[in-house]
Design a protein around this nucleic acid. Structure first.
Lengths: 334, 334
DNA sequence: GTGAAAGCGCTAACAC
DNA sequence: GTGTTAGCGCTTTCAC
């Protein structure tokens, strides 16, 4: 591998000049610049990243920490980060945190060892204090999918309350009056906000939601199925189910079918997230679209900007809105 | 950030000794070692990765290049790599290749700039010569999901022929005699091998597959739907459909339902891959399980081993077998 | 068993 | 406009 010295020697200049050419630093004569460029080309010279990192203490690398890459949501998130990273000529360093605070912290430490000045973090469980402290040490830290007031300028998040509202309103507009909710047993923010939004909108329409008709379970298909069974055991005083996410919604559909009920003819179901499964399952799911990929790309640009100027987003936060995608799991009621 | 010099000074030793302690190099006295360790602890010293990489020309980093992380298959692949990487204390550098040879090559170049001595590559389109040359320059290169004879020792791949055979045999055992196939329009290996396997098994059972009943389309849901419609236009001289992958299988199910046919009562459908959707769709898909995650972990360990000793896998290759997962999309025929 | 010192490839003052 | 030079933090001979 050719080094900067080799290039300098062959081009008959000093390494400083080569360095200037590489960085498009203004102060180089045209002829000289052209010659150096030619030699770089000929030798196939590529700057050594490690040497660069050593002296400049920066690596053009962005780190991502998410619970589990094999889950569709996080794969899409990572894809969004990768896209923005590539566009900005950054490399992407990945770690799964496996939903554990310990491995999450380890992952972050190791990213810092690698001089990632930017980190995108999807953290559900680490406490706020930890993250706030981290933000002081990592200028380019961005928290995705969570809001922390003290570092609001580094949070890229979704308005879950608005999402809950919109899905409820949609069902109301379709003539539904009797609702049930299937939500996550982990009340770490998102789930409760979504329910809260729905409840607000119901209240505004002089409708209410009996606590009996809010069932909690694991936020996956089995959980959705189980919660819906519990719901059915209450009689069936509802025509629509609001599910915490698409997986629970699919579980709900399974349980309803198993009970001889049709979706959407007998019961309407609304999901949340708009994972790719929502387009695949039958009936195709009417759901709130979560713009993860866009949010992730946005978060990446923000992280890069913050790493260069920690105050570039002072005084604001970064809120995205979910949008309703109408498919086949909701019917009108007369 | 404390450096090795700081540690040396505080511990009253030389940097060489600190380095020895860090690397568990034998030649350090017990008392001295203990003291140094204590200081490292106190100062929260962490070795600088860049400096290390600069002198040792190696980074304990593994690179992964796949087409698109947001696709379930590749997310799972990445997860498998990440797991093995973490276990071996390697970092994971990711790139999407977006199914383009150009960005694939760029991704690889940039990984090499970062001194990745190991790279896991999922490449469908790059030609063999390119990859063989690459293997000469990157000792720890492993190709996943493709077989190239000249570098067989670096290929971790799936026996698609065996997969085709097994799915056909399974249907034959269930009493099916009349088959149709829905396959990918891109005949880059996998699809043709799977069909070939099925045909061999059919032939051994004195059954045959009319070319009319092999329809090609895009390897996704829409393609599966479209190909199945074409199939139905031929009359319906089949009781079972072998789909190239799960997505096409789901598309087939959609088309069959739309035509008023039930799955599996009227037509049985077998998928391939066992993506998470296969457990989510209805009917849940009977499919060939593709052990991507295990293969990816295996490939990662192999890549690390190869980077240390390029001959450690000479004279062998790394073949995995898909296994049939029985769910609800196949019925017996009498 | 421990230390001194050379250098990995690059950047950025600072000279001229 | 271009060259000289001093490190960045670490590993690794080579002495002792």
């Amino acid at each position: 591998m050719a080094t900067i010295k080799d290039v300098a020697k062959v081009a008959g200049v000093s390494t400083a000049t080569v360095s200037r050419v590489i960085h498009d630093g203004g102060q180089v004569g045209e002829a000289c610049r052209a010659r150096v460029k030619k030699v770089i080309e000929e030798l196939g010279y590529r700057p050594n990243t490690a040497a660069r990192a050593l002296v400049s203490k920066t690596t053009n690398t962005i780190g991502v920490v998410t619970p589990k890459l094999s889950m569709s949501f996080f794969g899409t998130l990572a894809s969004g980060v990768e896209k923005a990273a590539r566009e900005n000529k950054y490399k992407l360093l990945m770690s799964n945190s496996l939903y554990e605070t310990k491995s999450e912290l380890e992952a972050i430490d190791s990213l810092r060892d690698h001089h990632c000045q930017s980190i995108i973090l999807h953290s559900e469980y680490s406490d706020e204090k930890t993250l706030i402290n981290l933000a002081k040490e990592v200028p380019g830290l961005v928290i995705i999918n969570r809001y922390i007031g003290a570092i609001a300028n580094r949070c890229v998040w979704l308005d879950n309350i608005a999402g809950g509202r919109e899905s409820a309103q949609f069902l109301i507009d379709k003539g539904h009056r009797d609702f049930a909710v299937v939500t996550s047993i982990y009340q770490n923010g998102d789930p409760s906000f979504r329910v809260e939004g729905a409840q607000k909108t119901l209240a505004e329409n002089h409708l209410s939601l009996s606590p009996r008709l809010i069932k909690e379970a694991a936020a996956n298909i089995d959980g959705g199925e189980q919660a819906t069974k519990a719901l059915l055991a209450e009689g069936k005083p509802f025509t629509a189910i609001l599910a915490y996410n698409d997986l629970m919604a699919i579980g709900a559909v399974h349980a309803l079918f198993a009970a001889g009920l049709r979706v959407p003819e007998d019961v309407s179901v609304v999901g949340f997230d708009d994972l790719s499964v929502a387009r695949v399952c039958r009936p195709r799911l009417t759901t709130m679209h979560y713009p993860v990929e866009e949010m992730a790309s946005y978060a990446t640009k923000l992280a890069i900007d913050l790493s260069r100027d920690p105050h570039c987003a002072d005084g604001r936060t970064h809120l995205f809105l979910p949008t309703l995608v109408e498919r086949d799991s909701v019917a009108a009621v007369q």
